[in-house]
Simulated assay, not measured.
Amino acid sequence: MSVKLTAADLDRATAAGILQPGQARALLSFLEQSAPPRASFQLAHVSYYGGALLIIGALGWLLTEAWMQVGDIALLVLALGYMATFTACGLGLWRHDQHIPGGLLGALAVSLTPLAVFAVQRLTGLWPLEDEQLDYQNYYRYVQGGWLAMEAATLLVGLLMLRLLPFPFIVMPIAVALWFMSMDLTELAYGNEFDWDQRRWVSLWFGLALLVASLWLDGRTRQDYAFWGYLAGLAAFWGGLSLMDSDSELGKALYCLINLVLIGLAVLLRRVPFLVFGALGVAGYLGHLAYEVFADSLLFPIVLSLIGLAVIGLGLLYQRHRQRLSSGLRARLPKTLLAYLPALRR
């Protein structure tokens, strides 16, 4: 069980004779310096992340055709101007201990890298795609081998930005670029034969590889970079898995089993994203069963509502007992397997 200590707690321990005078403050200083940063969920953080996502959307997949008509030089100047402004402001905020908004601005700069490379390729005549796929917003919609330069540049800029601003969210645009790159490289290898079924499998395997890499990274850094790796990996893995067509009930039951494994990993690793994706998958399977059993029945919305309440209850149960559940599950695993699990953080 984790316990939060304050200066007042240590002062009381000194007054009770448990600690010697002077040890309390030294211990508190040591704990503050050695403990990894703890995430806190505040309304201001919702505002920071919400604003960052709005900007990423506005300058990414929601970019309109009007932007494509301003000219390649203007597009490049705007992209580089945004990147320079976001980076400078992010560094300024970071130096004033405003790490969350500063780091998010750094992530915004990374997310604009594909737009800058897009403009450079069009200016230099190196743009490889056909006329019907000249629009930048198609980068976020279609698999195409011609996007590789944009993805490689995003990866490079992201790694450089992590050196300037070691903020975990910057891992997200890097992971997305790697996800796109895995698709585009496969499309380049397969050519026109790369169909939607193969794309789903590529997404699934890439997501699984990213989850394994995040598991290796988890607990090895002071900042929690693994969280965003888990989130991106789950999105790729679970998305590819959920979009696969299965006409057999056995396949659908296997899908439910995999999602139950994700819920078990949430307990084992103490990571909420596994619980969210796993619960969504199980709820989807239960919804399928409810539809088969209660099709065209007045009970159908009632059953789905009960499933939704069960999912909420599962989240509450996990939140209330996650320490005991995780410790109990870990106690049942062999020591050789425990050695590969990340250290307990909370």
Rank of each mutant, 00 (worst) to 15 (best):
L280W: 05
G284M: 08
L269R: 10
V282D: 00
L286Q: 06
G284H: 09
V282Q: 00
G284I: 06
L275F: 09
A283L: 10
F274K: 04
A290F: 07
A290S: 08
E292T: 12
S297Q: 10
A290Y: 02
L298H: 14
A266K: 05
D296Q: 10
D296P: 02
L280A: 13
L298T: 13
L286D: 02
G281P: 01
D296C: 03
G278T: 10
G281N: 00
E292M: 09
Y285Q: 12
G278A: 09
Y285I: 12
V282T: 04
L286W: 07
A295Y: 09
R271N: 09
L280P: 00
A295K: 12
A279C: 14
L298V: 14
L286T: 03
Y291D: 14
A283T: 02
V293M: 13
R270N: 12
F274M: 13
F277V: 12
A279D: 00
G284N: 14
R271E: 12
P273E: 07
E292P: 05
V293T: 15
G278V: 09
V293I: 15
G281W: 02
A295E: 11
G287N: 10
S297E: 03
A283C: 03
P273Q: 10
F277R: 04
L268S: 03
E292H: 09
A283R: 00
A279R: 07
G281E: 00
V272S: 07
L289S: 05
R270H: 09
A266H: 06
H288E: 05
A266N: 11
F274I: 09
R271A: 11
L289P: 02
D296T: 10
E292W: 05
A266C: 11
G284W: 12
L289A: 04
L289V: 15
A266D: 09
G284Q: 06
R270C: 03
F274D: 03
V276C: 09
G281S: 00
Y291W: 14
R271G: 00
F274E: 04
L268W: 05
L268P: 07
Y291G: 05
A279H: 05
H288S: 12
Y285W: 15
R270F: 05
G278F: 01
L286V: 05
L265G: 11
F277Y: 14
L265I: 08
V272T: 13
Y291H: 15
Y291M: 15
A266P: 08
V282C: 03
G284K: 08
V276S: 04
G278D: 05
V276D: 04
A266T: 08
Y291K: 12
F294V: 07
Y285G: 04
V293G: 04
S297M: 07
L269Q: 12
A290K: 05
L268E: 00
F274N: 02
A295M: 13
L289W: 11
V293Y: 12
L265Y: 11
L298E: 15
S297D: 12
D296S: 10
L265R: 06
G278C: 06
V282G: 00
A290D: 01
L265W: 14
L280R: 03
L268A: 04
F294I: 10
L280Q: 08
L280D: 01
A290C: 04
F277H: 08
V293P: 01
V267P: 02
R271Y: 07
R271T: 08
A266L: 07
L269V: 07
R270V: 02
